[in-house]
Design a protein around this nucleic acid. Structure first.
Length: 253
DNA sequence: ATGGCTTCATAGTGAAGA
């Protein structure tokens, strides 16, 4: 079974890339973040024509998440139940017996900002909710844009990024709390090229110079790690014309 | 360089991303 995640930075703009991704990788499920569409504008027919069904939770201009799947998604849930959040950042569904949880974790802007506080509060609510989800669904995958680079290896210049948003200790601490629930970073289960990242700034030729961060992750519960075969980032989609600033991550379980 | 790009909402600029 193949699962994938991709922050597309506008599904309207990136639809051709997403369709190409589905054709190339044929994932059983693809989690999307930052679709930036209201639900009535979601391109359902385009995905149906490609052999995929879709469940989604969108809003105008910002945020928005979706799960595309080749078989029907069951028991769909939106948001974190304990959190009253108008921002559409979470959708979960069961696909082929696997609980697929798609998250767009807040960016945080800067450690001094109100948005950083929102991010940390949001992460605490996520951890509490995931604890329950794991008890209900032992076969669980948490996929998405975490907006956290968990380790020095995940940052092109860890000294320059020390203490900065996306790489601050409280954020890394929250990531470790998620791991402590019994999840494993599937990317690090396997040998990977040095300087592997999932996001590169549009500015300053970030991608060409490989000035990136690994902030998009696929974490797996114990029941899924035992059978996990591979995890990879597909940089080709970041190299295209008019790309998302994120590359997709794909896991085989 | 609170710069640098890209997208969206909007009709000239501003917010937000990471």
């Amino acid at each position: 079974m193949k699962l994938a995640t991709w922050n597309v930075n506008s599904l309207k703009v990136r639809l051709p890339h997403v369709l190409e991704f589905l054709e190339r990788h044929k994932p059983d499920a693809l989690c999307l973040q930052e679709i930036k569409l209201e639900d009535l504008n979601f391109p359902v027919t385009a995905f149906n024509a490609a052999g995929y069904q879709a469940v989604f939770s969108g809003q105008k201009t910002y945020n928005g998440v979706a799960i595309l799947s080749s078989t029907a998604a069951a028991d769909v849930s939106l948001g974190i139940p304990s959190l009253d959040d108008p921002q559409k950042r979470v959708i979960a569904a069961t696909v082929n017996g696997v609980r697929v949880v798609c998250v767009y974790i807040p960016n945080g802007e800067a450690v001094e900002s109100e948005k950083y506080k929102y991010k940390l509060d949001w992460l605490m609510a996520l951890v509490a909710w995931l604890k329950h989800e794991l008890a209900t669904y032992p076969k669980l995958a948490l996929l998405g844009d975490y907006n956290i680079a968990p380790d020095d290896r995940d940052v092109y210049d860890p000294q320059a990024w020390a203490g900065k948003v996306l790489f601050s200790d409280p954020e890394k601490g929250a990531f470790k709390e998620i791991i402590a629930l019994g999840l494993t970073d599937s990317f690090r289960m396997f040998e990977q090229a040095e300087k592997s990242y999932s996001w590169w700034d549009y500015r300053m030729n970030g991608f060409k110079r490989n000035l990136g961060l690994r902030i998009d992750h696929i974490l797996l519960s114990a029941q899924l790690t035992t059978s996990c075969k591979s995890c990879a980032i597909d940089r080709d989609f970041r190299a295209k014309e008019r790309p998302s600033d994120h590359a997709p991550v794909i896991v085989e379980i």
